[in-house]
Design a protein around this nucleic acid. Sequence first.
DNA 1: GTAGGGTTAG
Length: 799
Amino acid sequence: MTRSTYHILSKARSGKVFSNRIKPTISRFHICPPHTCIKTLPFLNDLAGSTPFSAMPSSVSNHYASLLKLCSQPNKQSHLKKLHCLILKTINPIDTFLYNTLIASYSNAALPEHARRVFDQIPQPNLFSRNAVLSAYSKSGCLSEMEQMFDSMPERDCVSWNSLVSGFAGHGSPKKAVEAYRAMLREAQAAPNRITFSTMLIFSSARSSSDLGRQIHCQIIKYGFERYVFVGSPLVDMYSKVGLLGEARQVFEWMEEKNLVVYNTMITGLLRCGMVEDSKQLFREMSERDSISWTTMVTGLTQNGLELEALGFFRDMRAQDVGIDQYTFGSVLTACGGLSALEQGKQVHAYIIRTHYDNNVFVGSALVDMYSKCRSVRLAELVFRRMAFKNIVSWTAMLVGYGQNGCSEEAMQIFCEMQRNGIEPDDFTLGSVISSCANLASLEEGAQFHCQALVSGLISFITVSNAIVTLYGKCGSIEDSHRLFNEMQIRDQVSWTALVSGYAQFGKAKETIELFEKMLIEGVNPDGITFIGVLSACSRAGLVEKGYSYFNSMVEDHGITPIADHYTCMIDLLSRAGRLKETEDFIKQMPCHPDAIGWATLLSSCRVHGNMELGKWAAENLLELDPQSPASYVLLSNMYAARGKWDEVAQLRRGMKDRRVRKEPGCSWIKYKNKVYIFSADDQSHPYLERIYAELEKLHLKMVEEGYKPDMSSVLHDVGEAEKMNMLSHHSEKLAIAFGLIFIPRELPIRVVKNLRVCGDCHNATKFISKIVDREILVRDAVRFHKFSNGVCSCGDFW
DNA sequence: GTAGGGTTAG
């Protein structure tokens, strides 16, 4: 056996590289020659890197201890178990030091039961052994086992107490954490150390408990830790997280020998509280800055909506040759995404490839997100497909990317693919996929996701529950939506807004307003999105005065600055009610111009109320803002068509053709036996078309008997009356409803989804059909819900 | 177990 050094390089989970040098000592327990180990356990090679095993450490116990440390991760559990077996085979007796290392390794690998089993085999366990088991229970949240262990210990030191405190603090027992901390202070043998205080400070921050934070601060002063950077730094962090920036600054100023970390912490706190100028000042004052200082500025500025400035800092950072790492790239990509700056994002991507960060899972996820936010979902997909390793965040980023770019079906598919790859969804993923599902109005899948949320327990996340409340609202089951809302233990602003918007979308103005008022009484603050729900409910119900007063209250009582969506609601409210002159005045006194949706709303109302003059104004503005959008052409052409101005219609059609604008073809779909059947007006290929036409024919006769008159103004083509009739009776939603009547069992409602707004004639016809066949028919169109039952629609014919 | 990044819900 030669004396040699043994050198291990290991990559910790954080990606940081550290080296571990073990001093050579003479072995006493050397039984098994090292090369046999390599043959039996090839993974040891991977763990130890390129170091040849012939360079053998002198102490086998130390050697195994260092290998055990390499397996001390949850993703190396099997390696750890194999190594444990090897140790049992090759060493006898095992010394207490190695036993303790084994316990600690199982603890870090999240296997507390294994840690306990090792402990039970130790002939003479010491305080370290007990502390190691205690720590295993504490980290894994086995709280009762932890308490039992703690109570049974013959002696306890500061480490034991710290495990107890952090176990309670980290696993949902806040009361016991505080109790344990106070008991510790009373215990003479276990004086708190810096770890005790930083644990408690982080705990206070997480609970946003400024009172507890202050109490801990007092204790810190009492024990003389205040000016010590390792306690002062978390103290600054805690105060800034609970919003007490003055206190944070005071602690910062009082500290002696401030290091880089303290500065970085303070700058983060300032940026968190929106004090951008102060943070920049402090940044300039620093005598040295590291990568974290720069990245903090990039992140903080981005979070304060100052993406351009953030990119400026990134440029300076590169110019000054500061090390750029995965964190920096993550922040810069967020800034690019926030600006929808595709070109700059691509440049950063190129730099990432040059610096070989493109295989990093964090950077990859950030790239997927950036491209999605720049509306380049195909590029996001490309990056995602090329990622060598994907974690749950990468999957979620792609899923959300699809969802936010209107590719809801692809979002659902990627969710399935993720599960097939053995990745369990978390609250983020499930919430997002439910949101996509809601956009598709797929009630069956939605209900399955609801079940999945219940079974997995993810329903306890408020974000998941909120997503399901929204889901049922968008699927037309407002009762289910309300039921879940009532069942929720905690409700936040988002929950209330989800239900308010659900009722609004359903056209139930009275319920919407009642709910909103109840929300105010319960002391939940509405925000801009809540008001969009309230205002749209008013406009759908024609409650002009009420809507106006809510709009004013939003600005005056709630201090919310209206954005384009609110103005669009107001334009809708006024113009839909036919008060077009008022609408014009309103638009002219708005602080900003309406956006494309605002103009389209006005144009649509002008069509309904036959105001060509204002309609032209709206159309021109709409065309200027969005020349590629088919909406302006279609709406204007509808308006001309309704008045029989076919020459103008033809001219517009030519304009569309020249600019290569295409109208989105109308289609409706219905689900039957897990299959989606899609119908479009010109579809002649449908296998059941003959039966559907026959059904429609039959219905038509009964409808006419009941007093139905076709509304020809809904036909926007220059054709004869008979042909108009034919076109009208074959609108996609009528086909879908007829299909539903034939195939969907009587006891179930018929649910149809349409990609465009439902036309006047179909709406009227569906009312008649619901009465004739005595069935409930739900139609979800592009903007809202219509629930037809016994000849009446839930929207009250106002949509 | 002192500081920085990437993903959710209305």
